[in-house]
């Protein structure tokens, strides 16, 4: 089986998107006091942390930040042969009445986001949740759409988007499209 790899985003592309997100978020969420950023483990958590750094630099104040592991809310647990690894969830702020930017690296079927919404709601009643994704690869199975999109990449099933980030000990940030033939 052959596989073709193509780099679709480089470090500076990712950085530019995170900067754009920061400006767009501040524009569309004028109430800074209530703003919080939550990243989905693991890629989304790293991107969310980068986004918070940018927001804090622009606004010169701190923002609430949390990470969410959605394993316990997945709809396919009974279908997995082995139990997936449960990672840490850490929401160190009151979710009630917050405006939350939910961050993930790749938006695909929408099932992860569905699980993340359920997980967040178990912490309280946010005023609003918006979704920011680095890559939207299409092929949705749920009625879910992003509010902030880094890049849309049309894919077919059989293709994979791999996001490599330096936080995961990768040498450089990179997004790759991998096609199995």
């Amino acid at each position: 089986m052959n596989s073709a790899k193509r780099v679709v985003m480089k470090s500076k592309d990712i950085d530019r998107i995170m900067s754009r997100f920061a400006y767009e978020i501040l524009e569309r969420f004028p109430n800074r006091e209530n703003l919080a950023v939550v990243g989905i483990q693991t890629g989304g958590a790293h991107l969310a942390r980068r986004l918070v750094t940018k927001l804090e630099k622009l606004e010169n104040r701190t923002f609430d930040f949390g990470i969410l592991d959605i394993t316990l809310y997945r709809d396919d647990l009974a279908l997995e042969k082995n139990q997936p690894i449960v990672r840490k969830t850490d929401i160190p702020f009151q979710v009630n009445d917050k405006e939350i930017i939910l961050v993930d690296d790749v938006l695909y079927t929408g099932r992860t986001v569905r699980a993340a919404l359920d997980a967040l709601i178990d912490f309280g009643r946010p005023k609003r949740i918006a979704l920011a994704v680095l890559v939207d690869r299409g092929l949705r199975e749920f009625p879910i759409r992003p509010d902030f999109t880094g890049k849309e990449i049309q894919t077919i099933s059989g293709e994979t988007i791999v996001v490599k980030l330096t936080e995961e000990n990768e040498p450089v940030d990179q997004v790759m499209l991998i096609r199995e033939d």
């Binding site: 592991d69 394993t71 316990l72 840490k88 969830t89 997980a119 178990d122 912490f123």
Partner: peptide, 14 residues
């Protein structure tokens, strides 16, 4: 990870 669930106000996951 489960220790964290027990510290939430809604101590239940599906």
């Amino acid at each position: 990870s489960f220790h964290e669930v027990s510290e939430r106000s809604i101590k239940k996951v599906p």
